[in-house]
């Protein structure tokens, strides 16, 4: 049980440092579905409180941060991803959101993930493995507002693509920030087009904003290729 979330780490940052742990970790994924995370073990389904506004789905906030250097794998797993908590209503969402820093104030190489409860923010999850994501790169200074608009649209079911949405990610990087939204079926063009159009609308993006759709299989391939290369050349 180590590093199951390693595959998250580099993703689209575009600033691949070479201090990753070894690529073989991502292949261990399959047998390790039942993890021993304390958060998962004691998990009970959250429900909306009395008088609160229920959401269509329950969601879970996650946080991950890449640790500098080349840490031992178990250690690195522990540090790379943490569940912050799950919620079932609008009010419960705000409780978490108001006690978390805004992404623009995060330091270092950090990500927030907001996924439907039960879907892990990783490519290999059953809900994600046939999926992909829309990626929007933002210049510095825009990310907090953009992330808020994105997740409010997701929680409020503005995307109108049935069960297709899996979650959203914000990645804080050195030169730029990235927001993305993940859906289940990368090959479903009607869905991906609708997600794109909704993104344009809710994020108030100018028409010339470049939006990139990337399938998770491509992401995995790129990750493996890149890290294979690093290993072959002896790393840094």
């Amino acid at each position: 049980m180590n590093n199951k979330f390693d595959a998250l780490k580099d993703d689209d940052s575009g600033d691949h440092d070479q201090d990753q742990s070894s690529p073989k970790n991502c292949e261990k994924e399959k047998n390790e579905d039942e993890d021993k995370e304390p958060n998962t073990a004691k998990k009970k389904m959250v429900v909306p409180g009395v008088g609160e506004h229920p959401l269509q789905y329950n969601y879970t906030f996650w946080y991950s941060r890449r640790t500098p250097g080349r840490p031992a794998s178990t250690h690195s797993y522990e540090q790379n991803i943490k569940q912050i908590g799950s919620f079932a209503s609008v009010e419960q969402f705000w409780r978490f959101y108001s006690h978390m820093v805004r992404p623009g104030d995060l330091t270092g190489h950090s990500d927030f993930h907001l996924f439907k409860e039960g879907i892990k923010p990783m490519w290999e999850d059953d809900a994600n493995k046939m999926g992909g994501k829309w990626i929007i790169r933002l210049r510095k200074g825009l990310v907090s507002r953009c992330w808020e608009n994105l997740i409010l649209a997701m929680l409020g079911e503005q995307f109108m693509v049935g069960e297709e949405i899996c979650g959203a990610v914000v990645s804080v990087r050195f030169q730029e920030d990235i927001v993305s939204i993940w859906n289940k079926t990368a090959s479903d063009q009607a869905t991906t087009a609708r997600v794109r159009d909704t993104l344009r609308r809710v994020l108030n993006l100018p028409p010339n904003t470049i939006m990139e759709y990337k399938t998770h299989t491509d992401s995995i391939k790129a990750w493996v290729d890149f890290h294979g290369l690093v290993t072959a050349s002896g790393g840094r």
């Binding site: 912050i84 006690h99 978390m100 820093v101």
Partner: peptide, 11 residues
């Protein structure tokens, strides 16, 4: 929220 983990600089 209940059970909010204390992650310095994050929560």
């Amino acid at each position: 929220p209940r059970g909010l983990p204390d992650i310095p600089g994050v929560t």
